[in-house]
Design a binder for these strands. Sequence first.
DNA 1: GAAAAAAGAGAGAACGTTCTCTCTCATTTA
DNA 2: TAAATGAGAGAGAACGTTCTCTCTTTTTTC
Lengths: 240, 240
Amino acid sequence: MVDHVLPKQAANISADAADDEPRCFVAKLFGKRARNREAQEERILTAAMNCFIRSGFRGASMNEICSEAGMSPGALYRYFPSKEAIIEKIAATHRQQSAEILARMSQSNNIVDAITNVGLDHVRKMSMNDEGPGPRDSSARLFVEVRAESMRNESVAAICELHEGLMREELLAAFSAAKERGEIDPVTDLDLAVASLAAMGEGIIMRNFPAQGVPLEALEPVFRALAVGLLRPTKSLANK
Amino acid sequence: MVDHVLPKQAANISADAADDEPRCFVAKLFGKRARNREAQEERILTAAMNCFIRSGFRGASMNEICSEAGMSPGALYRYFPSKEAIIEKIAATHRQQSAEILARMSQSNNIVDAITNVGLDHVRKMSMNDEGPGPRDSSARLFVEVRAESMRNESVAAICELHEGLMREELLAAFSAAKERGEIDPVTDLDLAVASLAAMGEGIIMRNFPAQGVPLEALEPVFRALAVGLLRPTKSLANK
DNA sequence: GAAAAAAGAGAGAACGTTCTCTCTCATTTA
DNA sequence: TAAATGAGAGAGAACGTTCTCTCTTTTTTC
């Protein structure tokens, strides 16, 4: 009884190949093939993102994505099992980027600065694409799309809830710490403050002010005002 | 004796209406026919709205809408020339309802109350459907859908811009009046205040807090804080 | 190391389904 | 009876996905 079928491509560790890359120690996971696969997946995701921003999740067809990626359907489907899978991946990446920005809450000295800086960071990030700022293909559009999709697509909803739960925790921790430091009005309902701050911040982000000619600096006092209004910080922080 | 084949046009409203109008004066425009047409259009729009909330503009098919309306495609297309026309009509109605709420800004005595009341009205309206409050089929979902659609559909974008222009005007007028009455900090940038207040308000509305267990009254101080933070009103108004 | 075999990657036609919308014809209304 | 109304089949296009086939790269065998 030998597994004559299974162990097919045992790792060839020693010398062979001799292509462009210095060939490797651990064969399979980090080989040329694996790297190529990652690059292709990235190519598809970038193309899909552009299409989704342009036409929406439902509006963009697989053919559109294939064209944008310069790839045939047969090739594309080798990397993703379905359109749904691409949507989920893109939604997850997008929401995770937001969560990462939120995770920088603790870098500021006080709670008002923290909210202001994170808010501005968020708007900045969302109004840019990889090449630079731009109105047409900003990530804020994708945000609205993800929100809409999460309202009727259960797996996208779960993805959103996951990351947004993290964000709420992050905010709540920062608020609690500030409260204990005596920075904010002790009667403030922190849970409500977290929820409404997040909601209002999303509203600002979705509007994509930088793409409409409102410079980022102009939003600084807006976030500050929002923080001050919601948390009623002690005088020293409330100075504009 | 049963008409075994046709429960067909029983749903026609003139069947139970039992004929009230003296038919002759201004026959065509206000006659039974015209009223029936309006009723049918309404029936279609209601059905379409439910479908769009459930499945999104693109996700809902015309067959789905026909089923929901209890109507054949042939019948439905007698009242609307295309799916696009239905989408536009629903988007327009939805945005107009928002504009109507905003038009009540001048009913409050001071600017902070005005913002608070209008904000609460808006959330209340958006978290309800015609039959009552409900999380599943709330109009807030439709709002997100309209926003997403307006980003890639030019005519929906124009519809949104029309009503939102009115809303901004309404807000700006209220802010200006308050500024002249000396209610708010004279250095406040009113245009920016209008835009950011609208954006943040939308954020709150989209989250549909009442549907998630946050009572409407809890949002009252949130809107108040937002108004106070943004406009820095004179002391007498800023009291919580 | 060369030859043989297997696996991977991709192109593009084609599949079955679903889409929006139209056409025909029957029924109801005035 | 003429006009309005509606049901429902279905046309034609577009959809997401799969299939078949070719070409290249990697692994195994001798």
